[in-house]
């Protein structure tokens, strides 16, 4: 009589690590999202910053709608990029202060994946809201019609890359007491390609040419950074914690 006991057991043993990784990922994301929901001010700050910076430009340059329309794609993209940059510093800081990060380092689950969960939360709470808010500010800058969908799409796609790359800088500077300015110095040069293709997509949409190439390149940037960055984030977190 063959007892079926062995097979479910080995099945379970084979399955367990995978399941626990997925569980840990979800648990990390849930925890981070909950922590942000309990303190919604932090997430709103970057949105308010975005709106404020956009307000400064018509005041500083000119309220002329024609002029604003020509520079709107670049303005929206640069302001969104700066808003995303500003929120980077807090990505790991609280977890670093209360020791959660150390737990994450000691956990059995691979650190690159867990770091990616944190990056995903960061994007969900800053990049995505910024992208969704951009059309409103676009109206205020008299962005020509027909480019709004591309604006949202390019910002959503591009800000994901910004979060992934920015996480490297955030992880490198989390242990430093005055890491804020240094963080922008490290991260901004790396943001240049995203800005070029993102703002380029909106400009192409206004000009009526195809935006497929821009969006494809933004997607390619995201794919490349998703492959390389998690390792760099994990290595940087280890350096910051052991240093």
């Amino acid at each position: 009589m063959s007892r079926p006991e062995a097979s479910p057991k080995s099945y379970a043993r084979g399955r367990e690590p995978e399941a626990s990784v997925a569980l840990a990922l979800l648990a990390t994301m849930r925890r981070d999202l909950l922590a942000l929901l309990r303190r919604p001010g932090a997430a709103f700050n970057s949105l308010a910053f975005f709106a404020l910076v956009i307000t400064l430009f018509p005041i500083g340059i000119s309220p002329d709608p024609e002029l604003l329309a020509t520079i709107a794609p670049g303005l929206l993209w640069v302001a969104a990029l700066l808003a995303a940059l500003l929120s980077l510093d807090g990505m790991f800081r609280d977890d670093f202060a209360d020791g959660t990060l150390e737990q994450l380092l000691l956990a059995a689950q691979p650190l690159p994946l867990m770091a990616l969960a944190k990056v995903a939360v960061h994007w969900l709470t800053t990049g995505l809201p910024l992208a969704l808010m951009a059309p409103v500010l676009g109206v205020m800058l008299s962005l020509p019609p027909g480019s709004y969908a591309v604006l949202v799409l390019s910002l959503a796609l591009g800000s994901a890359t910004l979060s992934v790359i920015g996480a490297i800088g955030a992880a490198l500077t989390v242990g430093l007491s005055r890491g804020g300015v240094l963080l922008s110095l490290l991260v901004l040069p790396l943001y240049v390609p995203v800005l070029i293709f993102g703002a380029g997509a909106v400009q192409a949409a206004i000009a009526g040419t195809s935006v497929a190439a821009h969006l494809a390149l933004l997607g390619a940037l995201l794919a490349v950074s998703l492959v390389f960055a998690p390792w760099a984030i994990a290595a940087s977190l280890r350096i910051s914690l052991n240093g």
Binding site: I168, L172, A235, I239
Partner: peptide, 18 residues
């Protein structure tokens, strides 16, 4: 920016590779 020389070296190495 790092106080410890070793962590500064490793951080700079990661950033250079990125």
């Amino acid at each position: 920016a790092f106080d410890g020389r070793d962590s500064g070296s490793r951080a700079a190495s990661v950033l250079t590779m990125v």
